[in-house]
Design a protein around this nucleic acid. Structure first.
Lengths: 212, 212
DNA sequence: CCAGAAGCGGAACAACATGACCCGCTTGGT
DNA sequence: ACCAAGCGGGTCATGTTGTTCCGCTTCTGG
């Protein structure tokens, strides 16, 4: 019973044992390559990592984009699940902070997911899945804001942006980010997101856009 | 007296008046294209924007990379000047915050600069200029930390990263950033960078790496 | 006003990248 | 041991991009 998009894509009768093994390798290799290279992966990257030829790749997969879309759909859906589960946490801040960390960690650890959520995967038609995620996050943010554990002087949409930016865009000023740079960025951002800030006297920025 | 890299690159005897006009258009077009398209600009982008042919471009410019490098060198140097000037501000926080805004604004308004500072411009050999900028920023950060107006529990290097991340990486979760999204992100980040935070009880992240 | 040097546009070239296909050989499973 | 299913990777078609070239046009000094 193909629950996942990947399983659905690769549904097949009774392939030979070696063929099955290759498909699994291929999927694993694609995930890896997607993590490292983002949406710029090529068929050759994948085939090489999987240790198979291009012919093998195209035997089971209709096209590169279909494969990428299937994998990313599953990844995004998993993140949506996490957001939904965070809503079960009784403490609104804890639920939010928990998800924030998951969200940033997942994005930071997969360039492919980062690209997709940054709107660079238009050709893959992921919008419906992204919209579901968006709704879940909005609920989480709104709940925390209503409980007054998250700044309410910002539009809810500013929060996903703030979180997303925890991922370093590459080097900076000649400095190379360490693998957990996102963690320290997130710490700063979460601190900045708590309400009742009385500091930052002459900072820039005015209140955000109208809500919803 | 060519003070700027661009002027040096384009130094020439006494070009015909129309040729001079074209060179100016070309430089302006390159700046524009670099802002919008980042380091992915092509010669055709530039020529088209300038309203000239490719031949005209190559008449005065040895190569695309040389042109990009010259323009970015000037831009980075200007930013270094701003950092140096911020050191003149008597108030350490004000100097820092002032520069932070300039820094983020410039980066947000030019994809080319953003790319270069994110380490994507290796082929252009900008490291020496970036190193100068890095030194100026370090001074600014250190001064603010010593004055206890900026969290001292972070390595100074974390601060440029935190600032750089104010620039949205594109869309997020299907949301499209407005042109001044960076301003709201920066606000959150600057708030998170003030010292004496007593909030964020159960947040993740441990203290940063050893300094220097 | 005119000759000729300076300049121009953009077609053409070479190098490369990339998605997709095909076909002769190999191999698993009965 | 047989043979269909499967495989590898050479090959093709296409698109992109930096750069050059050359026939025509436009300035400008006298």
């Amino acid at each position: 019973m193909p629950e996942s998009a990947v399983a659905a894509l690769l549904a097949q009768g009774q392939p030979r044992a070696d063929a099955q093994r290759n498909v699994e390798r291929l999927v694993a290799a694609t995930r890896e390559a997607l993590d490292e290279l983002g949406l710029a992966v090529t068929t050759r990257d994948i085939a090489q990592r999987a240790g198979v030829g291009l012919g093998t790749l195209y035997r089971r997969v209709p096209s590169l984009d279909a494969l990428l879309a299937a994998i990313l759909t599953d990844t995004i859906d998993e993140m949506t699940d996490r957001a939904a589960r965070a809503l079960d946490s009784p403490d609104p801040w804890q639920g939010f902070a928990e998800f924030a960390e998951t969200y940033v960690q997942l994005r930071a650890s997969s360039c492919g997911l980062h690209d997709a959520l940054s709107g660079r995967g238009e050709r893959l038609d992921l919008e419906p899945r992204i919209t579901r995620l968006q709704r879940a996050v909005r609920q989480l943010v709104r709940r925390a804001q209503k409980a007054n554990v998250l700044r309410a002087d910002l539009d809810w949409r500013d929060i996903p942006f703030a979180l997303a930016t925890a991922i370093p865009p590459g080097h900076t000023i000649g400095l190379v980010p360490s693998g957990d740079q996102w963690r320290r960025n997130l710490r700063i951002i979460l601190d900045g997101l708590r309400p009742a800030r009385s500091l930052a006297p002459e900072g820039p920025a005015e209140p955000a856009a109208p809500s919803d």
